[in-house]
Design a protein around this nucleic acid. Structure first.
Lengths: 103, 103
DNA sequence: CTTGTTCGTAAGACATGGCTTACGGTAAGC
DNA sequence: GCTTACCGTAAGCCATGTCTTACGAACAAG
């Protein structure tokens, strides 16, 4: 939901691995855990954090829960980053002009 | 430099506070610490992490070191995010089409 | 109804990371 | 040269977070 949760969620390397694996398409928990060096409950805990951050969503399919990437959290992070990006560029341009001070 | 370092750097709330304070313009370490609820050495440590991530740079000015935002690290993070953003949108569109399956 | 899968949650051990105090180094001012 | 101001680093304490094992719930199959 908020960009802060998205940042803390994506800070963990294992959680990024889970997240990037979902790029290949929606997958159940067990499928994700099978290709990762951690246990299945650990994957569940990571998915909970990602879900709270609005980065993933899940749908039930029998006894399995299929997780997929949710653009919502990614959008919040992107907006914050873009807003930051502009002011950073402006400051950088102003600094460049200040350094080469030859009117 | 890498997007991974930028993510872990921006995950910490205090470090975000330092970073966002630099948005107002280049500032020395003491000035940053004066407006934050932590000690000056703590600010130095945070600045080191931000610098290693390519998010800030510093220049010496007498005995003071002026820190400013560096677009380099921000750009790396932005590229990674954008690349992720596209595939997420594509998957979302495909999913929407799959759900409303009425040919 | 019983069995087997798949999953989430709880509890505990363990490592990681952030903060403080203490110290040394460098530059400016008198 | 001496003092003062500003900063980075080291050591240690403490909180946070991550992982594992153990357990219980929900659904499908037979």
């Amino acid at each position: 939901m908020s960009y802060e949760q998205a940042l803390t969620a994506l800070a963990d390397p294992t959680r990024r691995a889970v997240f990037e694996r979902l790029r290949a398409g929606p997958q159940p928990v067990g499928e994700l855990a099978r290709h990762l060096p951690i246990s299945r409950p650990a994957v569940s805990q990571h998915l909970k954090v990602l879900k709270d951050a609005g980065l993933v969503s899940d749908r039930a399919e029998g006894t399995r829960r299929i997780y997929h990437i949710d653009p919502h959290g990614l959008g919040a992070l992107r907006r914050w980053l873009d807003q930051f990006w502009e002011t950073a560029l402006d400051a950088f341009a102003a600094e460049a002009e200040r350094t080469s001070d030859k009117p």
